[in-house]
Structures are given as C-alpha cells and as structure tokens.
Amino acid sequence: MRFADIRPGPVLVGVSHIVWRLPGRPATKMAEFAHTELGSGHDMLEACELTPRPEMRPLYFLHALDELRHSRMFRERARALAIERSRTQAVLDDSGYLHSHGIRGSDPLFTELGELDFLAFVWLHEQRGAAQFGIYAGLMDEDPASREMFARIEKDERFHIAYSRKELERLAAQGQASAVSAAVWRIRWRRFKQGWLRFSRLIGDTMAKLWLTVIYVVGITPFALIAKLTEREQGGLVPAEVDDRPAAQRALEQL
C-alpha cells in the first residue's frame, strides 16, 4: 500500500497556463473556487456532525473552518480583481450562493460514502486541490496579493492531506490495509464514473437541444400561428375555472 501524494501532470499545468491568461478569467476562476471551497466546507461540517467516531470530529471541524475561510478569501479576491479590472460584478455578487439546485436533492457526502471512503475521498480530493492551487500560485507573477493568498491556502491544504493520510495509514496499520486500498480505488473509480456521467449528460443535453431546435424551427410554426390567433393574454380578474371532479379524484391527477 503506497500513500504517495499526487503531483500535477503536465497537461493540467499547460491548460492552466493558457486558461489563466484569458481576460477576466482570474476573477471568475476565483469566484468558482469560492463556490467549491464553500461546498467542501459544508461537506466537512456535515461529516463533523455525522461521524460516529468522536476523535475525528475536531479534525473535520477544523478542516471545515479552513474551507469556509478559503471560500471567503477567494470571494474577496474575486471581488477585488473584478473591481481592479473593472469587470461586471454580476456573477461575483452571488458567489456566496451555491447554484447547483438540482432536481434530485442529495444526501450528505459523508452518508453517501461512509467514514472510510470519505477519508479516502478527502485525501485524494485535497491533493488535487493542492496541486491545482500550487499551479495557480506559480502563475501569479504580476499579482502578489493573489500569490500570497494561494500560498496561505496551500499550507492549509497540506494539513488536510496530512491528517487524512495519517488516518488512512493508521487504519491500514491496524490490519485494514486491504479495506483502505479498496476504498481509495473506489473513490478513484467514483471520480472516473462521475466524469463519464458528466460527459454523457453533456452529450445528452446537446443532442436534446439539437432535436428541440429542429422541432422549434421546422415543426412549431403552425402551432405557434394557432396559438397567436387563439390565445388571448386576457388581463384582469376572470372567473375561476369550475372543477367538477370530486376532490378525491382531482387530488390523484396531475392536471
């Protein structure tokens, strides 16, 4: 069982270099980081609340406080950059919000994964975060304030990697080595799966939009004409429609 930390690959470094130089990018990227850090902060707070192992609670708590602080730092930096480079703040004003209002609703990450997998997740995820921040810190030649911020954050990330690795190593040493390494692999597989699903969803949405566009352009004209002729957008108070269905039947139907 190896617990070697990941190093950033050349592709990630190269892409980051290009992306960072796009105009307005630093501010929006910082705002994005603010979102992700806020999300991990909440995940960690939930883990802190839910873990059955009291000795893990303070670690998760400190970790959460770090992430929430990072989120604020990123948000403030994003705002400062946006003002400095006089770009609109429309996005930035909202960076306190999480936007992923899905349809499904979801369980806490901790509940979904369980303690062991959650630790493996933290360890892998934090490494990725640290690597990414490391790259960005190296890109900040003209922006000492951001560079300093990234450096401070990276230091915290080291702590997150260290405690999760220590905990995994401890569990491995207690005779759970195979369970730990299985957990690490499960998280890697989960990440791959999620990437694939995102890809699948992207293609699906694009295809669906294409079909919808075809329907709209080719098929919808006659209906639109009828609608324009027959639908009156009548204002004012109109009598409420009388629904004859008995309440019990009415309740069962979606119309």
Binding site: W196, L212, I215
Partner: peptide, 23 residues
C-alpha cells in the same frame, strides 16, 4: 406537438436510465 414532445421525453428518460452507455 405534445405527442411529439412526449415521445422525445420518453426517449430522454430511457437514455437517462442507461446513462452509462448513452454516449
């Protein structure tokens, strides 16, 4: 039109059910 959209909706729901191989 609703019929057409319904069919599309069913297809999309079907593809969602097999999202791993959908691509």
């Amino acid at each position: 039109l609703v019929l057409l959209l319904s069919v599309l909706g069913l297809v999309l729901a079907g593809l969602q059910a097999v999202q791993y191989v959908a691509p």
